[in-house]
Design a protein around this nucleic acid. Sequence first.
DNA 1: ACCGCGGTCAACACCGTGTCGAGTCGAATC
DNA 2: GATTCGACTCGACACGGTGTTGACCGCGGT
Lengths: 226, 226
Amino acid sequence: MTTARTPTGAAPTRGRRAGRSTGDDRETAILATAERLLAQRPLADISIDDLARGAGISRPTFYFYFPSKSAVLLTLLDRVTEEADAAAGGVFERLAEDPRAHWRKLIARFHATFGGHRDVVLACAQVRGTNAEVRRLWAEVLERWVRAVQAAIEAERARGAAPDGLPARDLAIALNSMNERVWYATFAGDGPAVAERDVVDVLLDVWLTAIYRTTTPPVIPSGGTP
Amino acid sequence: MTTARTPTGAAPTRGRRAGRSTGDDRETAILATAERLLAQRPLADISIDDLARGAGISRPTFYFYFPSKSAVLLTLLDRVTEEADAAAGGVFERLAEDPRAHWRKLIARFHATFGGHRDVVLACAQVRGTNAEVRRLWAEVLERWVRAVQAAIEAERARGAAPDGLPARDLAIALNSMNERVWYATFAGDGPAVAERDVVDVLLDVWLTAIYRTTTPPVIPSGGTP
DNA sequence: ACCGCGGTCAACACCGTGTCGAGTCGAATC
DNA sequence: GATTCGACTCGACACGGTGTTGACCGCGGT
């Protein structure tokens, strides 16, 4: 528990500067304050002073724990993507059993994870434009998911369940992009958006038609009936 | 030509405060400076002073022409969406002649328009998070395009070329969202993206499969052979 | 000659960020 | 029990960007 600062092992010092001690409370207090405030107003309207006061410390002290406002958000985002990764775990392996059911499970779980932390996700999407760090981390996360989906599509094609077509990577990018934007609109509620209770099925439909050319891919592996 | 300030007739005073005169030059100089600077660095790194100096005026004078930095961007965005609307004009009407060709033309024209003003589009996407005005205008524009696509899908279904399925509006939202996000990634170049020369065909493929369940919808109107 | 007004800017007030230097406090160490 | 060290804290400052104010210029109309 000593070195496990940032969840994404690679990135070294996002949070505190050095060793650990009672200040752990403060760090989590800042994080909690951020999430609480984010539920009320956009990140741009939250000053570092707000975060500091919310955690019961002064502004300079904030800088002891985090190098900037966005570092806080980054830490919050780490948690969410970690949770999403965990939620998605094991779904790809069992795709062949019942493609529709498992693709749906995949999308539904992401939906649940993002929906459970919509304030954080929304805030990230909002600052991604202006903040290179957030952009980089998000790109990294997305790349992982794209690769996973690409591999799944290729596997489905290899076993004859899905027809050939677009390069699997391009398709995976397009589909992931769609989900991201559609979720954003649904959660943000500005502009045209799909109703929250329908969004999983809408996305699923597009995924299935794009991958299989049908919304009801075969449950039984192919190979023809003997 | 006196009252035609903002292209989007409805929104009244985006540009100058009052009447017209030689200062028209200055206004366009600001716009030109903005577009030029946007090609070099993100909007956040462009101060109002940069804009003013670029147009040969002082910072306070800038405020005589535009109420804020984002008002400049809004005006620029107006132009682009107008151009996109014009480019898309008339495509929907002739969808039945050759669905694939015309959907492709639609996507390709949008692609060309956005690609031709990528700096403006990218800047808008980046500040949409933090700027309510941009968000509102973009939502408005998107709503128009969603409605148009929805109507086209319904027409294709009515004439029997496309099968029933998702509510046409939801499908239109999902497809438009995908395009937006995919284009953004392609133009921005950060994160997983489709190569620029492939992007139109990738998007087209997903549109066709989602709408028709095939990438080669029939060229001849249906109704069965007599 | 004198408005009125489009157009212009120097100077100011304000706010949020990030930094610096001076400090406090508790737990090892001697 | 004094000393030292490093974690931790904050008051105060410098900086940069924004938006506003008040004075000013020049020119066409009366």
